[in-house]
Simulated assay, not measured.
Amino acid sequence: MVKHKIYTMSFSNVYPHYVTKAERKERTKREVDEIICWLTGYNQEELEEQLERHTDFETFFTNAPKLNPSRSLIKGVVCGVRVEDIEEPTMQEIRYLDKLIDELAKGKAMEKILWDS
Score class of each variant (00 low, 15 high):
16 P>S: 14
17 H>L: 13
17 H>R: 10
18 Y>G: 01
19 V>Y: 03
20 T>F: 10
20 T>L: 15
21 K>E: 12
21 K>I: 07
21 K>W: 01
22 A>V: 05
22 A>T: 07
23 E>W: 06
24 R>T: 14
26 E>R: 15
26 E>Y: 15
27 R>V: 06
28 T>I: 03
29 K>Q: 07
30 R>L: 06
31 E>V: 01
34 E>L: 04
34 E>Y: 04
36 I>G: 01
41 G>A: 08
48 E>V: 12
48 E>Q: 14
49 E>H: 09
50 Q>R: 14
51 L>N: 09
52 E>I: 11
53 R>A: 13
53 R>P: 00
54 H>E: 14
55 T>D: 10
56 D>T: 02
60 F>R: 03
61 F>Y: 06
61 F>H: 04
62 T>I: 13
63 N>A: 04
64 A>V: 04
67 L>P: 01
67 L>R: 14
68 N>T: 05
68 N>M: 03
68 N>C: 03
69 P>N: 13
70 S>N: 13
70 S>Y: 00
72 S>D: 13
73 L>H: 08
74 I>L: 06
76 G>D: 12
78 V>N: 11
80 G>P: 05
81 V>G: 13
83 V>I: 13
83 V>R: 04
84 E>T: 11
85 D>G: 00
86 I>Y: 04
87 E>A: 14
89 P>V: 10
89 P>I: 14
91 M>Y: 09
91 M>P: 00
92 Q>R: 15
95 R>G: 06
95 R>E: 11
96 Y>H: 15
96 Y>D: 08
97 L>G: 05
98 D>I: 05
99 K>G: 05
100 L>T: 10
100 L>C: 09
101 I>N: 05
101 I>Q: 05
101 I>K: 01
102 D>R: 06
103 E>N: 11
104 L>K: 02
105 A>L: 00
107 G>D: 15
108 K>R: 14
